[in-house]
């Protein structure tokens, strides 16, 4: 069993989930707070990873992080190296790749809060932030759980982006899904099976957590 790969996978999924909750919450709050072209364009951009092949996303990320681009040069100046083929490069790739899995449940949750409550709160003097913190977020709390679990589970199962951005460096960027691929290539089916069972278990536990918290509402985002 490739335990370093399992550890790396869990660490990557945890960090990605935390980063994405921080990034996706304001983004989802903005998207759900009105209409207009800006919001539609943002929704389409956020949903892109759902339809793009992971290799395309990974390819552009690899190009974007290279020393030929301004971002790549800035990263080298700040952290001393490009993020490609490092753990933090994987985090960047995973955050972008899992963005819709965090943003979409939150948008659905925030939009599902009764407009009457939001309006009443604002007439009673609550500004945008207070309405969000005291009315929308608590009423949409299940959608945070859904977003976190889906992001975690999706990151655990990532393959294409991780392979493109991270390569396959044991202990550094070789996650469990890549480890399975490697073992199958080496005809080590027993090893691949042991790793695959871990992925099945992790995914099942994540989904069970959502269904258990949702009291039978499944992936529904309303509380």
């Amino acid at each position: 069993m490739d335990f370093p790969a399992l550890g790396l996978t869990l660490r990557l999924a945890s960090v990605t989930t935390l980063v994405l909750l921080v990034v996706a919450t304001p983004l989802a709050a903005w998207i759900s707070s009105g209409r207009g072209w800006g919001r539609r364009v943002m929704q389409a951009v956020v949903a892109l990873p759902l339809v793009l092949p992971p290799s395309v996303l990974g390819f552009y990320l690899l190009l974007g992080l290279s020393p030929r681009t301004a971002i790549g040069r800035m990263l080298i100046a700040v952290v001393g190296h490009s993020l490609a083929f490092t753990f933090w490069g994987l985090v960047v790739g995973s955050v972008i790749f899992s963005l819709p899995f965090a943003v979409q449940p939150l948008v659905a949750g925030f939009s599902g809060v009764d407009r009457g409550l939001v309006e009443t709160a604002s007439v009673l003097g609550a500004g945008w932030w207070v309405v969000f913190a005291r009315v929308i977020a608590p009423l949409a709390r299940m959608s945070f759980v859904t977003a976190a679990v889906l992001t975690f589970a999706h990151t655990v199962g990532e393959f294409g982006v991780v392979l493109m951005v991270g390569g396959d460096i044991p202990g550094v960027t070789r996650t469990l899904s890549i480890s399975i691929f490697d073992q199958v290539q080496e005809a080590n089916y027993a090893g691949a099976n042991r790793a695959a069972i871990w992925l099945v278990l992790l995914s099942f536990m994540a989904l069970l957590a959502v269904y258990a918290r949702g009291r039978g509402q499944g992936l529904g985002v309303r509380d």
């Binding site: 409550l117 309006e119 009443t120 007439v123 009673l124 003097g125 945008w128 009315v135 608590p138 009423l139």
Partner: peptide
């Protein structure tokens, strides 16, 4: 903005905040 209009408002549908108890609803503002 709506929040700055200094209005006390009781809408037709009570629209109580379902996650807050009576005291917290009353003290919302």
């Amino acid at each position: 903005r709506t929040a700055q209009r200094k209005l006390g408002y009781a809408p037709q549908q009570a629209a109580l905040f379902p996650h807050l108890n009576v005291r917290k609803n009353v003290g919302f503002a």
